[in-house]
Every structure is written in C-alpha cells, then in structure tokens.
Amino acid sequence: MAPQEYTVSVNTPMPKGYAFLKKGIKYKTLHCRRLTHEAGKPVYVVENNKKLIGIRIPKSIYFHVQSLANETLPARRLATEQRDAALVRTAAAELDSQFPNIPKEDRKKILNHGFRKNSGRVGRTNQMPMSRKVLYAVVAHIRHKHTNYDQMLNDGTTREDARKKIHKKLQSILREWGATQRKP
C-alpha cells in the first residue's frame, strides 16, 4: 500500500488522535513520517500560504519519536561532530595542497569561516568537489579580507565591476600563496 499523505491548511481541524510536529528537525520528521506510513496511517502535511510548516502524525508515534530523539541525541551529536571534523580535516588537507604558502592566520580563518556548519557557505555544499569548495573559499576570503571589494560594494559599485577591479590583486595573492589551480 502506498504511503498516504494529504496536504492541509493550518486551519484544517486536527484529526482525532493526531499531534503536530513543526518543520525543522529532520530526525523527528523522517522517523515520524516513516513510522506513520508503516502503521498504515495518513500523514497530514500542514501548509500556511503554500509554505510547509510541519506535519500531523498519530500522537503515539509523535511521543515515541520524541522519546527516541532524546535517547539518541548525544550519539547523534557526536556523530555530527565527527563528520564535521572529518570535513574540516579534508578541507585543510586540500587547502594545504592547493595553497602551500598560505599564511597560517588566513588558513585558520578560511577553515573556520568557509566550512562552518549551517553557514550556507560554499564549503558546506554537497554540489561540488572539495577542491573547488576550497578554491572558492580562498577566493572569497581574499576578496573580502585582502581587497577593498566590500567598500566598493558599499559605495555603489556593482558586484561585477568590483570583481573586475580587484581581479589583479586577487590573482597576485593566489600566486603568492602558491595556487596550484587558476581562479574559477
């Protein structure tokens, strides 16, 4: 039997025996959804103005998953920290490979800023290889910390023009740091 999911409005009355789980915690959402499907019960996807705000699932499943989430939280946090540390180690090795002459302070700032969890930065994307993530993080760092790029933007220069104006300085620093690849 195919999983049953229905989209409802926030104003739709709560089905008897159901609870609301707000959007935002993947672990809870995935487990509540899976267990509700396995129980053969419908999941109600709640939207407000066409934006997903959460799901409605049976209360028994809601409380079970809440309990599981609390029990497993320390282990899940540790696993996340280990994955994040591995990502930064991989990025550090790639950074050292591509830019062997990078100053220690710049290296530290790039790793802390460009690969910070939940930052939305290029280093956190899964859409490109690590070599490109590192290169883009370095280019962004140079642009923002070693040129007057931000001041140009604040003064009304377009992004494209500001990038053209700092291009030579950016390339010079990349060469100085021993870039093994060309600027993207």
Rank of each mutant, 00 (worst) to 15 (best):
A140N: 09
D161C: 00
R77P: 00
H167L: 12
Q171W: 04
Q66R: 02
K59Q: 13
I57R: 08
I166T: 12
E160K: 14
A91W: 06
P184E: 12
P129F: 12
I55H: 12
D150F: 05
P74Y: 04
K108D: 10
F63C: 01
P74R: 11
V138W: 11
Y62Q: 02
N48S: 14
D155T: 02
N112M: 09
Q127W: 02
H113A: 02
K50F: 03
K168C: 01
D161N: 03
K183W: 13
N118S: 05
R107L: 07
I142V: 14
I142A: 11
T72G: 09
P58Q: 05
L95V: 08
S97P: 05
A91S: 05
P103D: 14
I55V: 15
L174Y: 00
R159V: 13
A85R: 01
P74F: 08
K169G: 05
H64I: 04
K109D: 09
M128V: 08
K165D: 09
Q98E: 11
F63W: 09
A75W: 07
N101E: 08
N70R: 15
F63P: 02
A140L: 09
E47A: 08
G156D: 05
K145P: 00
Q181L: 13
L68N: 04
V139Y: 05
K168A: 15
Q171Y: 05
E160M: 13
G156Y: 05
F115Y: 02
R77W: 04
L111H: 08
L111I: 14
I57P: 09
A179S: 15
Y149P: 04
V46Q: 14
I142T: 09
T90A: 11
G114T: 01
R107F: 06
K183R: 13
D155K: 09
G178T: 09
R124E: 04
Y149D: 06
P129K: 12
R107H: 13
S97N: 15
T80F: 12
Q82F: 04
V65C: 07
V122D: 00
I102W: 08
I110G: 07
T125I: 00
K117H: 04
S131Y: 10
Y149E: 08
I110D: 06
H141N: 07
D96C: 14
N49S: 12
A162M: 01
K108E: 11
R143K: 12
D155R: 05
K104R: 12
Q82L: 14
K117S: 04
F63E: 13
L135P: 02
K165L: 15
R89H: 02
K169M: 09
V65A: 08
A140C: 05
N48L: 14
I166Y: 03
L95A: 06
L153I: 15
E94R: 07
K109I: 04
M128F: 00
E71F: 06
P103S: 10
K183N: 15
N154L: 10
K109V: 06
K104V: 12
S131H: 08
V65Q: 07
T180Q: 15
G54D: 09
M128S: 07
S60F: 07
R182P: 00
P100Y: 08
A79H: 00
I53D: 10
I61F: 13
T90K: 15
T125S: 10
V46R: 12
V122R: 01
K104D: 15
P58K: 00
T90D: 09
M128A: 10
